[in-house]
């Protein structure tokens, strides 16, 4: 039985003034899986993320989420439909506390985010859930710490907790272990596995052991196009992939 597809792209193309960053990428991400997007620097991985979340408009091609065309949706709308991304550099709100960071994400469904006449105390109803989410990533002791003061690994954990607050169907993680020490990487891998339960994760990652550990399916991009796709073992033996990574003809 074929797996249900949550996200599909058809011949996605992004051109920047004569330079083709993404060239005819067709992806299928199966619901409930962890799918990794790998490739050498400049392969177009982050650009694909920006296209999927509509941070950049696609030049051509289509994006389907749950069978619906989201190629022309607005970025905030894409997020509300359930595609939530993280960023390559940690994306927290630096001057807010850890609790406030998570609460920003929880706040939107209340429908009072434009209510400038209402007291902020109405947000305290969200504190319990925010603390739960912080605890899920091991940050319960840091709830009142201003985000800018958290060490790097904890910032990434906070970012993940904020993302999870939206309960997204599809999580796009852009290099979640970038710039991390060995111990932090292990923590984040465990965390991703934990949060992937019951949802779909599309992951851009340079650390191949993380990819091997986590991803059921791997798509290799090179120069904006899909070079290979399959399980980690399959693609890691693919001569074209080896050439793209190491530069040696197989």
């Amino acid at each position: 039985m074929p797996e249900e597809t949550i996200l599909e792209t058809r011949d996605l193309v992004k051109e920047f003034a004569g330079f083709v960053a993404v060239n005819g990428v067709s992806l299928r991400v199966a619901r409930g899986s962890i799918h990794a997007l790998i490739g050498p620097n400049g392969a177009g991985k982050t650009t694909v993320f920006n296209l999927l979340t509509r941070f950049l408009p696609a030049t051509r091609g289509a994006i389907l989420f749950n069978g619906e065309d989201v190629t022309h949706a607005r970025p905030a709308d894409v997020a509300r439909r359930g595609i939530v991304r993280s960023f390559q550099m940690s994306a927290v709100f630096p001057a807010l506390t850890a609790l406030e960071n998570v609460r920003i994400a929880l706040q939107r469904p209340l429908g009072t985010s434009f209510h400038f006449w209402r007291s902020e105390r109405t947000l305290q109803a969200l504190d319990a859930r925010a603390v739960e989410l912080l605890a899920a990533v091991g940050l319960e002791a840091d709830r009142d710490t201003v985000a800018v003061e958290l060490p790097y690994g904890r910032k990434r954990a906070l970012e993940l907790a904020t993302t999870l607050a939206l309960d997204p169907e599809l999580l796009l993680l852009d290099e979640p272990t970038q710039g991390m020490g060995h111990e932090d990487v292990g923590r984040v891998v465990a965390l991703i596995r934990h949060v992937a339960a019951g949802r779909t994760v599309l992951l851009v990652e340079h650390n191949l052991s993380v990819v091997q550990d986590l991803a059921r399916r791997v798509t290799v991009l090179a120069r904006g196009a899909v070079l290979a796709e399959g399980s980690y073992d399959e693609v890691s033996r693919d001569p074209a992939v080896l050439e793209a990574y190491i530069g040696a003809p197989a």
Binding site: R74, F87, R118, L123, T162
Partner: peptide, 27 residues
């Protein structure tokens, strides 16, 4: 009051990190 309202919190989030606020679904 606007500063210390639910709206004020979103505003501060946008000031702090606009792409992130956008990715959380705020227009």
């Amino acid at each position: 009051r606007a500063i210390h309202s639910p709206f004020g919190h979103v505003l501060r989030a946008i000031r702090e990190n606009e792409p992130r606020a956008l990715s959380l679904g705020y227009d």
